[in-house]
Write a protein that binds this DNA or RNA. Structure first.
Lengths: 244, 244
DNA sequence: CGTAAAGTTGAATTCTTTCAAACACGGTGG
DNA sequence: CCACCGTGTTTGAAAGAATTCAACTTTACG
């Protein structure tokens, strides 16, 4: 491929998660018709911020490898984790809206993101991307709404069961699970801040699960031992979250 | 205007909330270049459903007049209100994703919605709409995230203050307020189900506000008497939600 | 091996829910 | 015009879920 074409599609063709990316429908076209585009990979170390709440950020990002969390800090010191971003997922479009970013993006483990710096150009060259983007956002919205529902109306154990299975489901769609177990880089405080509970309470809930033989955690790997039981607590059929 | 052009732009030109609609950027163009499109108005009576959770719904809707709530019922009888839809706002795009609708849309008062039935055609004729749509979804997302944060981390009175000012803000952007007061068709159960609290507790919180002279409710109209006090409880600067 | 970060435990407190009953109000029909 | 009915609002008391605070233990890591 000529080097001036190394851009959107050039990088995408080598992306291991291209089938989960919002732009996947464009990949069916011949790549030679695609213009070069200001896209490049960025590496992040564990605990490094991609951007911070309050920044004026212009770019769009897609996670290629790793695990990113979207977090919001409030004046009174509380933190909320909006969601975990898994490979193939898109972040940063919200920053296109007027005003500074309302949340931070932080890598939990070493990660690689694909950075699209000039969105306006990209969308003027390929307006069909707009609809792809809208679909990706609608998926995020659906997920966020499910968290909203769970946090608003359900008990600590139910929320926890929902979250763990939700992550398992999303990882499975990407082949990032190992049957009923998966790499789990979140600590108990991250879980607490995702579910609107305290670390202490998450700790007790997790222990209850372990004592009842529902799951096990070992060296940042989570093993679901009794899927049926956790699933009935979670109370959600994850088929409502099909792949993009 | 020739009658075959009475479609997207024909209806839109007469829409009182066109400046708040996701498609507003297209209205700057000459309307004669726009093809006819399968768009029409639909009237809803109070308490009538626009669509129901579980339906296979294909259309996109924009509220022209009235007040719609997006609700989700769970098997155990609980209800969650995701959000109130105000004139100019878009709903139903999520239904484009595979699978049945995950929530219902119900009119609280008599309403009129604009129905766009063939989305695929519309977006193939006007691909730029995709980006407009994505921006509208990003706004919804931002709002939903703020509710998520409030519900997950803050007290009943704080959530309530947030919700009332959030509605006041969004209504103000549309000129649907009357200074510090506005038409308020929600009952206490609707508020409770939006905030993840019980009616009883909402009742007590509202009374506390009334006793301290912060607000007053009269014949479905809400009067904010002490904006500063409620605002400090709400703890949010609504400038983060600019018009589209 | 020593320090910092993460996880665990108990007891007391607080906020919210639950349950049950009463009240207010608007609309309808006799 | 009044009695009645349903929906929505109000009130009290007891129970429950999660938080707070403070201390202790374990794990990770240079």
């Amino acid at each position: 491929m000529p080097s001036h074409l190394f851009g959107l599609i050039g990088l995408c063709l080598t992306c291991p998660y291209k089938q989960h990316c919002f732009c996947k429908n464009l990949l069916n076209r011949s790549s030679t018709e695609i213009e070069s585009s200001p896209i490049k990979n960025v590496a992040l170390l564990a605990k490094q911020y991609l951007y911070r709440q309050g920044d004026m950020n212009e770019a769009l990002f897609i996670l290629r490898e790793g695990w990113i969390m979207l977090t919001r800090h409030s004046e009174d010191g509380k933190r909320h984790v909006f969601r975990s971003i898994l490979p193939g997922e898109l972040i940063g479009f919200q920053n296109q809206l007027r005003g500074p970013t309302t949340y931070s993006a932080i890598a939990l483990i070493n990660s690689i993101v694909c950075r699209i710096s000039n969105i306006v150009d990209l969308f003027s060259i390929r307006p069909e991307l707009g609809l792809c983007l809208a679909s990706a956002l609608a998926c995020d919205m659906k997920l966020t709404e499910m968290y909203l529902y769970n946090i608003a109306h359900r008990s600590a154990q139910e929320r926890l069961a929902f979250m763990l299975l939700e992550l398992h489901h999303r990882l499975s769609l990407r082949g990032l699970n190992n049957g009923y177990s998966f790499k789990f880089p979140l600590n108990q405080e991250d879980i607490a801040d995702t579910l609107g509970l305290t670390v202490v309470h998450i700790n007790r809930s997790l222990q209850a699960f372990k004592e009842e033989g529902l799951l096990q955690i070992n060296k940042r790997e989570l093993f679901i031992l009794n899927y049926t039981a956790i699933s009935s607590l979670a109370g959600t059929d994850f088929k409502i979250f099909p792949p993009l």
